[in-house]
Computed example of a mutant assay.
Amino acid sequence: MEEEVKKLLFEFSKQDEIVNQWLNTPKWFFDNLTPLEMIKKPGGHEALITILNRIHYGDFS
């Protein structure tokens, strides 16, 4: 996984277990794919970064 993604995730939680759980749980906003599955798709990395930034800055729209 790219360092940018790891850095954003560890801003939310410093606990590996929580980060791993988030990465391996399907998300409705990724059409029920896990973030790890999504990042492998074309445009998935950008979609993941966008979601993480929206969560980070409180944009839940």
Rank of each mutant, 00 (worst) to 15 (best):
P26D: 04
E37W: 06
E4Q: 13
F30E: 06
E17K: 10
W28Q: 10
E2A: 06
L8Y: 01
P42F: 03
F12C: 14
F29Q: 10
K40V: 07
A47N: 11
F60E: 07
T50C: 10
D59S: 10
M1P: 03
T50I: 12
T50N: 13
I49G: 01
T25P: 07
D31L: 15
I39T: 06
E37H: 06
I18F: 03
L23M: 15
L36C: 12
G44S: 10
I18Y: 02
M1V: 04
T34L: 09
Q21M: 15
I39R: 02
E46F: 04
S13G: 04
Y57K: 09
F10S: 12
F29P: 04
P26A: 08
T25L: 14
K41P: 05
Q15C: 14
H56F: 11
S13F: 00
F60A: 12
W22A: 14
G58Y: 02
Q15H: 07
E3F: 01
L36H: 02
K7A: 12
D16Q: 13
L33K: 04
P35E: 03
S13M: 08
K40D: 10
T25I: 14
P42V: 09
A47Q: 14
E11F: 06
S61H: 09
V5H: 00
L8V: 05
H56K: 15
L23G: 09
E2F: 04
F12Y: 01
E46W: 00
A47K: 10
E17H: 06
G58F: 01
I51W: 02
N53Y: 06
E4M: 05
G44V: 09
I18L: 15
H56R: 14
T34H: 03
K7E: 12
M38G: 07
E4V: 08
V5Y: 00
N32Y: 14
K41N: 08
I51L: 13
L33W: 01
F29N: 11
I55F: 05
A47V: 08
P35N: 06
H56I: 09
F12Q: 05
S13D: 03
Q21C: 12
R54W: 11
S13E: 03
F30D: 04
Y57F: 14
D31E: 15
E2R: 05
L23H: 04
A47C: 12
D31A: 15
E2W: 03
W22G: 11
K14I: 11
N24K: 05
T50K: 12
W22F: 15
G58W: 03
V5F: 00
E17P: 02
Y57I: 10
K41G: 11
G43N: 07
L9H: 00
A47P: 02
L33S: 04
I55L: 09
D31T: 12
L23F: 05
K6E: 11
N32L: 14
D16P: 03
L33P: 00
T50V: 12
E11I: 13
M1Y: 00
P42R: 08
T50R: 11
G58T: 07
V5C: 02
N32M: 12
L8Q: 03
I18Q: 11
Q21W: 07
L9M: 06
E4G: 04
I55H: 00
L48A: 03
I49P: 00
I55N: 03
N32V: 08
P42I: 11
I18H: 01
